[in-house]
Write a protein that binds this DNA or RNA. Structure first.
Lengths: 232, 232
DNA sequence: CGTGACCTTCACGATTTCTTCACCGTTGCT
DNA sequence: AGCAACGGTGAAGAAATCGTGAAGGTCACG
């Protein structure tokens, strides 16, 4: 349960406090004092979670968050100095997974870190939306998929893959992207593994596996979920 | 304290924002991205409250509201993009219980949700209501559970877990979520601990522990309380 | 200060799921 | 057509997940 955590906070006292608490929980920490370092270290070290103060020299936390979010799904927790709603709104808008407003209790911070870490790796944590594509319905909250009303039992990975594809029907995802988004970004598997899952998935949801109606192969690129042409 | 709330909003960011705020208040949410899904999910899941954006694909919020209102008296809150009076009038005319104009503060939204729920008797009743799932009855106010009329003595944790699951039957909860919601946000416990409690719980409420009728395992995800198929 | 209820963790085995591999048919390019 | 890269497929070993019993710890109560 230990993780590598980046702490971006320009006030050394604050940083030390956070560091102390998190290390007591068995995590290893890395402290940086400004936004640019935060960005660099996140890219280089790929921590399991980043804690970003919003007000920082050079690049502010919001920008760092925005940039990071564009590159990865790493869990990000924002520290907002003021508890004005604008800050919170902005933070979430920018893609943060959670926020803590100062002054905070270190205990709360640690708890939220813990919660975020547990949820990391869980696909669709923030994407609990009922998706419908043609005769295919999926409900991430219930871990349920129905084809033409008939429920289908999928495994975790199969569900994850379908979820990724369904997030943007018609768009082609490479195997690398699928592994990243469905399995978690620290998952090391061969790309061919995706093929195996896709096949199992097809066997469960396709009427004719040779002529997939939903999960289609794009030769040399990857897979996609076909947009269903409403036949009416 | 907790209600099941449907959020119909086509902008994922907005949806996530609302979701985060409401879940922090202890509610359980379900997000849909278009009007048709909103209608379907409302009919199928019967949430305690629906939040509808007016501008949505497929069927707009006003129509959804009108239709829902014709079939039930579920509390409905409309999100209107523009704050023109026409919209507001139209919204209320169509049977909405309240409306919030964008841009709104999440705090305000949460407050209105609370008010609506209280008015509807969902939350105000303080969960004095007895939850019934098949032959399982639980009375959170009394800390009492009965299976087929026979009272069963549960420990605090067992009761907490059952309560979390019962808040939204059919929905799958990860062990992390269960720990957060049942034990408290700052409770530090291995996820496997949940298993132990679930087993003890099953031994008390299940006729056949190997074929759980209530608390079911979802491999790779977590646990859920089965929806009981009314054998009509 | 002993007792018992409860919570948490651990360890083992059973089961399910994941991953890889090898073989072969397809596809796309020249 | 011929070639090389690509993807489908089934099987099998590896790994993850879960159920289960038991041990140790904490706390309240008598």
């Amino acid at each position: 349960m230990s993780a590598r955590i980046l702490i971006a906070e320009d006030d050394p006292k604050q940083a030390r406090l956070i560091q102390l608490y998190l290390e007591r929980e068995g995590h290893s920490t890395l402290v940086v004092g400004d936004g640019r370092s935060a960005l660099e270290q996140c890219r280089a070290r790929r921590p399991d979670l980043a804690i970003l103060d919003i007000m920082m020299p050079r690049i502010d936390g919001l920008d760092v968050c925005r940039t990071l979010r564009a590159e990865s799904d790493m869990p990000i927790l924002l520290l907002t100095a003021r508890s004005t709603e604008d800050d919170v709104l902005l933070g979430l808008d920018v893609g943060a997974d959670d926020y803590v407003t100062k002054p905070y209790s270190p205990r709360e911070l640690a708890a939220r870190v813990r919660a975020l870490l547990r949820r990391a790796g869980v696909v669709g944590a923030g994407n609990r939306e009922v998706l419908t594509v043609g005769d295919l319905e999926m409900d991430p909250g219930r871990f349920e998929v129905r084809v033409a009303g008939r429920p289908v039992a999928l495994t975790a990975k199969e569900f994850g893959i379908l979820e990724v594809l369904a997030a943007d029907p018609g768009r082609v995802f490479t195997r690398a992207q699928i592994i990243d988004k469905a399995f978690g970004f620290d998952h090391f598997v061969l790309e061919r593994t995706v093929d195996a899952h896709v096949m199992n998935l097809r066997r469960k949801i396709e009427a004719d596996v040779c002529q997939p109606r939903y999960v289609q192969t794009v030769h040399g690129r990857g897979y996609r979920l076909a947009e269903q042409r409403p036949s009416r």
